[in-house]
Computed example of a mutant assay.
Amino acid sequence: MELGLTLVGDATDTTPAEASAAFLELCRTAEQSGLQTLWFTEHHHNPTRMSSTIPVLMAAAGAQTSLNLGAATLLPGLHDTTRMAESMGTLESLYPGRLLWGFGKGGRSEILYTHLEHITPENAREEMMRNLRSLLALRGSEEVMPPLSHDTPWFVATRDTAAVQLAAENGLGVMFGHKWPLEELVGIVSTYRSAHPEGRAPAIMLSRYFLCDSDGEQVQRRMTEEVGKRREHMRRRGRSLGEASGEGIRFRESLVGTPQECRERMAYFRAMGVTHLSLRPVSTCHEDTAASLVMLAQR
Score class of each variant (00 low, 15 high):
G228P: 11
S141E: 11
V174K: 00
R193L: 05
S254E: 07
Q218V: 11
D215W: 06
R130S: 13
Q220T: 15
D213V: 07
R139L: 11
A163I: 03
S194N: 13
A162S: 14
G140R: 11
S214Q: 13
P153H: 14
A201I: 06
I119G: 00
E247D: 08
V144N: 01
A168I: 12
G242I: 04
W154N: 06
E143G: 08
E198F: 15
L255P: 04
E122A: 00
Q218P: 09
C212H: 03
T152N: 12
A162R: 08
R252D: 14
R252C: 05
A167M: 15
E143T: 13
A157D: 00
A157Y: 01
E126T: 14
E243A: 09
L255H: 01
S194K: 15
M175L: 07
L136G: 05
V227G: 00
D160Y: 08
E122P: 03
M234E: 09
T120Q: 08
R222Q: 15
G177T: 14
G140H: 11
G246Q: 10
F176I: 05
T161F: 11
A201Y: 02
C212Q: 04
G228W: 07
E184C: 09
F155K: 10
S240G: 10
A244K: 07
L185G: 01
V186E: 02
V174E: 01
S254H: 00
S190R: 12
F210Q: 01
R235N: 00
S207F: 15
R239M: 06
E143R: 10
M145D: 06
S207D: 07
R239I: 06
E217Y: 09
G187Y: 00
K179F: 15
V164A: 02
D215G: 03
P197R: 06
H178D: 10
D213G: 08
T120N: 00
S134C: 12
R221H: 15
T120S: 06
V219L: 08
A163H: 00
G242N: 12
T224V: 09
S240C: 03
K229R: 10
D213F: 04
A201P: 08
F210I: 08
E183D: 10
R159I: 15
L172R: 12
R139I: 15
S141H: 05
T191L: 14
M175F: 10
M129T: 04
R159Q: 13
T158C: 12
F210R: 06
P181C: 01
T191F: 12
E184I: 11
G187S: 05
E126L: 15
P121M: 04
L135T: 02
V156M: 08
A167G: 10
F251A: 05
E225K: 03
G187P: 02
R252A: 06
I204R: 01
E143H: 06
A137M: 05
S240M: 03
E142A: 11
L136E: 08
M175E: 06
L255R: 05
D160M: 10
